[in-house]
Write a protein that binds this DNA or RNA. Structure first.
Lengths: 237, 237
DNA sequence: ACCTGAACACCGTTCAAGT
DNA sequence: ACCTGAACACCGTTCAAGT
């Protein structure tokens, strides 16, 4: 076995790793052998390096998977601007679906993740913007996103209220000043998410997003739509 | 530390374990500490037994989790008979949701499982029956179930076509005789699933359930329903 | 700055043995 | 029939050390 560099570099035979390489290798490995095969040890072997070397580029296993998710989600295809709102939303959702079909591990990975990553939030904001482009109220945008639900992945409405798994320590509540700074930063980066949050807070001053309401809203929307097809004698093909 | 039995049973201090006890302990442990805490070693310690003892009652880890899923799904509340079909479906879905809220590990467990278990199939059949009670065509029942999608858990339409994870060996295709026997057994136990399968096979002789069609069917159903709310000036609260 | 080696506390599962 | 003990091939992550 000769080192990868042919010329004769003296001490360091291979260039040092970086985060992007580690994440890309993780994505490639997951594509090839599934998410379960992405262990620190297996991935490091793939990169010709000892397991602990990865910890220079990745905080821990969760950070590795979060980075892999973001790498893919940031690459979602973006439809051309100026589409009618329904077509715009449609294209965004189908673009996300394309990525999910290409990377079957992505959906379980996003579902298992406890924190939403920046690219995931950005996609959420983009889809909310596509709704808002049609002049829908942010109230309806909010519920519309909940209705699409897991169809938009990366973005999933559960981002708003994800019950922590048992055995997880609750994060310390941010102070008022921290909350203010956070809101300002979110409003800057994710204007549509901020608009929904403000609209929701105005409507329901107690703050909480009522999951039960969202669930029944979508359920009834779907049942009514199916019933409508039933009475019109709809048939596939 | 004295044995649990007080009276003075001579050799065997505790009654032998059985499958139901193991599964119930697994459910209790998952409820208390999350699915990740349910390891063969941890669960066996909980039962005061060596890890290998569990393998007398459970084939392996997958069988343990499948048994835990079935235990909960078989306990879904059943709405009273004779309801209008939409209300019937609604109650079944909300009963499943109640169980999911009570056992937060259930959804990830069902999602991660590769095989549908008997109780999950039975629930599916029950919901299909609730649709069919309204006189809907099995074509529409099929698409309606796909539209409800993950809202009915245990039951999820992906049961029809679950892409195997990479690295999983494909099961050998059943012979024609085996297929015939399987269909007969299914038709016996799950009449509504069988009716949908027959209807689908009649419509699409090539057999496959077109996931892309299902996805877009639901997507468009939802977008149209939201658009309808938009034009009527719908507002929450 | 980046990588290594040995170690720790975990996994699921096998096999042969005990009672 | 049911449970045990030792072993194997894995995990993620720590710490102190190398270059």
């Amino acid at each position: 076995m000769t080192p990868a560099v042919a010329g004769g570099a003296p001490a360091r035979t291979t260039p040092p790793l970086n985060r992007a390489q580690v994440l890309a290798a993780g994505v490639a490995l997951a594509d090839r052998e599934g998410l379960a095969a992405v262990s620190m040890r297996h991935l490091s072997a793939e990169l010709g390096v000892v397991p602990m070397a990865l910890y220079k580029h990745v905080a821990d296993k969760h950070d590795l998977v979060a980075g892999m998710i973001d790498l893919v989600v940031a690459g979602y295809a973006v439809p051309p601007p100026g589409l009618e709102w329904r077509e715009g939303v449609r294209r965004h959702v189908l673009a996300a679906r394309d990525a999910l079909l290409e990377h079957p591990w992505l959906r379980p990975a996003i579902e298992a993740a406890t924190q939403r990553t920046p690219a995931v939030l950005a996609h959420m904001d983009t889809v909310a913007g596509a709704f808002a482009a049609g002049g829908l109220s942010y109230d309806l945008v909010h519920h519309g996103m909940h209705a699409l639900g897991h169809r938009i992945w990366g973005f999933s409405p559960e981002a708003f209220s994800n019950p922590p798994a048992p055995g997880t320590l609750p994060l310390p509540a941010p102070s008022a000043a921290e909350q203010h700074a956070m809101m300002a930063a979110v409003a800057q980066q994710y204007p549509h998410i901020a608009a929904i949050a403000i609209d929701t807070a105005t409507r329901h001053p107690l703050g909480a997003c009522d999951d039960q309401f969202e669930f029944e809203f979508t359920l009834d929307l779907l049942l009514e739509a199916v019933a409508r097809l039933h009475v019109t004698g709809w048939s596939s093909r």
